[in-house]
Amino acid sequence: MAKYLLLKHYRGAPAAVNDVPMDQWQPEEITAHIKYMQDFAARLEKTGEFVDGQALAPEGTWVRYDGEGRPPVTDGPFAETKDLIAGWMVIDVDSYERAIELAGELSAAPGAGGKPIHEWLEVRPFLAVPPTITE
């Protein structure tokens, strides 16, 4: 088994095929989209492949250490940040091929006009623990 992070971006991913902002969809299309996402996660729980899923607020803050005895420096949020993560799902699957297959299904979530969004998702393998048998 290997873990993969499926990353969804607010910004920074190539444009989706069906790229319409959600507030311009029909309300029932939003409902259908949310149901698709919930059903997808529920299905992966049943197959024993779901680990975690979280959504992130669009705005964050940059923080860095500023030396002994000083409070951390904060900056942002920056409107021009190129890459903005919207959320993730962590899956634990038998193969890279399975991870790709699942990301493909997630990208087919319905959007405007009830048609698949064809959204680009980023699939990132976790760095695993070293194996016990190495030779």
Partner: peptide
């Protein structure tokens, strides 16, 4: 965009979509 949880975000997005 500023909603503190998913349920509210979904609800508010639907409200925007309804008016649009």
């Amino acid at each position: 965009r500023k909603a503190p949880n998913l349920a509210e975000r979904d609800h508010l997005t639907r409200q925007a979509a309804r008016l649009n």
